[in-house]
Amino acid sequence: MMNKLMLIFELQKTQKKTKALLSFVPFLCLLWFSSFLIGCGGNTSSAKVETLDNVETLETTKTSLPTIPIYESFDEMAHIFQYQNDTTYIINFWATWCKPCVEELPYFEDIHKKYANQPVKVILVSLDFKTHIETKLLPFIKENKLESEVISLVDSDANSWIDKVDTNWDGAIPITIVYNKNKRKYIGEQFANHDELESILKTFL
């Protein structure tokens, strides 16, 4: 029951960050509640899971998943590209299903740690599908112990926002934007190694 309670609080925290969603809670709840009554008790797949030996481990993993902001609309997060302060921002678009994205994540993590005492901020914008946030993205963040800030963008109408990130971007990932109040750089491909990313960052510092 404690586990369940913790999950509730986590869910609530997540929901706070998506104000729009919150307003639908009572309505959604009715739906969830009714589906519980109809389907949950006799759910065969859940019965199968409970017979697994490692069900405890899975349970623990689930209840301690990290929480991240989830943006339903790009405009709600557009401000992260517009800061006018002394910090240099490294913003990377990625997804857990994108192999080259995953390959280059350690470079961003290295920078995040190495420049922890300097005005450098790494933001990893996940484009994982809405339905995969709990099942793939959050477990991935936990398993790989990502320390950089991760945010989730689930605005499916990419044609409406890709150009707002950069007009050079056609939609394939990974891409990275490095900017501060003085300049801005678009990197439309995977970094070959850590040094490539750091040498670009150094031109901003």
């Binding site: 369940k4 009572p26 709840c29 009715l30 859940s46 689930k62 709990e134």
Partner: peptide, 25 residues
């Protein structure tokens, strides 16, 4: 309170489904 109660049911139900999907993936 209503929302909270509902979320309990939601959480109870979702838990196993999520685990199964995570395993599969």
């Amino acid at each position: 309170l209503f929302a909270l109660t509902c979320i309990v049911f939601f959480a109870a139900c979702k838990d196993n489904a999520t685990n199964a999907t995570a395993e599969k993936s």
